[in-house]
Write a protein that binds this DNA or RNA. Structure first.
Lengths: 214, 214
DNA sequence: TAAGAAATGTGTACACGGTACACATAAGCT
DNA sequence: AGCTTATGTGTACCGTGTACACATTTCTTA
């Protein structure tokens, strides 16, 4: 398959210079097309032009590299949400703005799942909890990670009277469940092949359901 | 680790007699604790007492074995739904019965995800579409697979007037998304450790949301 | 019923992946 | 200059999926 079966001396210096980063970038590229399982240590080192074991100077294990890729993916999800949130104007009124905020968070999530299915799956393939994780590597420009952005939107909704206080607790999990479930159906389930507009319609219907049912 | 490092002659006959089944059972056991990734061909053959390559007389590949395990898991999901459906009595009135049917389907799904997380993950780890799959190996006692049971419950709801006809189409995907998302949060996500009653409460709240929002 | 065909298990072998361990080389500090 | 530390290399081992040839048993069919 490869035109260069053996191509060790891809650089003159003994040191790589930026290996950790190169491995991370390679890992991200692998995850992008192929999802978490495609993140293969040896392949990342190949792309970086080093010997397999060199990776262990920067990552404790394959799992550790995957975690770094995952953090990057989570940050991108957060950024996708922020893009949608930034489209809104508070001037439409508190309640409307709050509802739109929840929708924006969901729309960003769904859009990212559709645009980057491999990275999306990687972001949520771990059992690690992101809810209260302060790691800025998993956050967007706002400093909040996807879960925190959702919580913020729901707080906004509760404050605006769009969500009775007694139903505020745990509402994250209800909204997250719905949107996450659809995202999976979209990026690896039966809704993979659907054209974008159709998916967007279903996505908005799902958000209608959440808004009405929350 | 193993007390019998090499234990080839676990039987006297050259033929195993029921190898396909033995491999399937082993695969199911592996999936039960460990999920899809734990379904390892060589381990299954070890448990069956045959040489690794013997598996290829019955399964084209590891993937093929996994598919068989998956069919079994899907059938169990269907059966879990049927258990919940069988608890209902149509005498409560058509609309109430229809609503309860949708809830029963969701409850069965959630219960199974909680009771058998490994098999649950295996059931839905494939990209294969189950919607119109007539394979009886994936169905419950009723002959319907999980998706078909959901569709039936939604039909019932629409017939009873609990779901406007214009919102019937695609409703499967909305309900499925919500329940599937929560199932994942329960069986491999942040809600793993929660005690059963708490999870049941959240599950019922989620079904409330679906019922109200559909 | 004997012989050939088909089914099923075995042995050997290879490539790929993760990773441990010892060694080499370079960079930084004293 | 010499020591320490960081980083890349070489060699090696084990586990996994799977191809290919061979052995053994069962089934078919003449």
């Amino acid at each position: 398959m490869s035109t260069t079966p053996i191509s060790r001396p891809r650089r003159s210096t003994y040191r790589h210079g930026d290996l950790r980063n190169a491995l991370l970038e390679a890992g991200i590229a692998l995850a992008r097309n192929g999802g978490p399982d495609a993140v293969v240590l040896r392949e990342a080192t190949r792309q970086a032009g080093v010997v397999p074991n060199a990776a262990y100077r920067h990552f404790a294990s394959r799992e550790d590299l995957l975690l770094a890729v995952r953090a990057h993916a989570l940050a991108q999800v957060a950024r996708a949400m922020e893009v949608e949130l930034d489209k809104l104007h508070p001037s439409v009124g508190a309640l409307r703005y709050a509802r739109d905020s929840v929708r924006a968070v969901g729309t960003g999530y769904l859009r990212y799942a559709h645009a980057e299915p491999g990275l999306f799956k990687t972001a949520f393939s771990s059992h690690e909890r992101v809810e209260a994780d302060p790691d800025p590597a998993k956050a967007g420009a706002s400093g909040m990670n996807p879960f925190q952005l959702l919580a913020m939107a729901l707080d906004r909704l509760a404050a605006a009277g769009g969500l009775p206080p007694e139903r505020r607790e745990g509402a994250e999990y209800l909204a997250w469940s719905a949107v996450h479930g659809l995202s999976l159906l979209i990026c690896e389930g039966p809704m993979q092949g659907l054209p974008e507009p159709v998916r967007d319609v279903i996505g908005q219907r799902l958000l209608d359901m959440v808004e009405k049912g929350l």
